[in-house]
Amino acid sequence: MPSVSWNFISKLPTEGMTKGGILPAITGTVLLTFITTIFAVPFGIACAIYLNEYARPSVLTNIIRASIRNLSGIPSIIYGLFGLALFVQALRLGTSVLSAGLTLGLLSLPYIITTTEEALKRIPTVMREATLALGATQFETIRDVVLPKALPGILTGVILTLSRAAGETAPILFTGVAFYINGLATSFNQEFMALPYHLYMLSTQHQSIGQVRPLAYGTAVVLIILVFIMNCIAFYIRFKQRTQD
């Protein structure tokens, strides 16, 4: 893999993106995933807690569950449209890394809820009952007993979901991704470069596709390695937890 070198991942693109590195695309993807995380993870975990710990079987609960199932089946390009209509237009955030990150957050939400709920389900009811019997409120039970115990399971689901989000392209197409920015993104209201879009651009949109093919291969390799590392971390946490139980 001659195209992937230290220079490739630590330098800015040069000469019309036919030479140089992909550093802005890497930092862009990291920043984007960071925004997705701070938005989707608290909301997703809170919703899963509600569904698993508080909600009783009712019409409302059924509607919430049905919504989550349907949200996870909606094509990602429709999330892109929704992000465009909501964040870029209605909330006037413009095309920016913030709009794109929030859009990916919406996309990730149903997955985080589902995987968190599964992790919570695995905690035996006896543990909750024991704490409640000692006089703790339900919130204290969740905070001090359920969540710490379910943490590895939740973490696995969150990391797997974020690895998907980091590789998504369709939802960020209209919400803030750019071909090129002449520096590293420093604020939330700037447009940004992202690894998956960079690969798309290098392989279909760039003017000298043949010439930049090695860069496209390099970008693909970096993107896949990034996603695989995240997956491996998730698998490791899951494996360790299973051997502990």
């Binding site: 040069t14 000469e15 019309g16 090129y180 002449n182 520096g183 700037q190 447009e191 651009m201």
Partner: peptide, 18 residues
Amino acid sequence: AESFHSTNPGLFVSISGG
């Protein structure tokens, strides 16, 4: 934009085709 950046480091330029 690449050359522009060296003379105006405080100003970012983001570019998209399409």
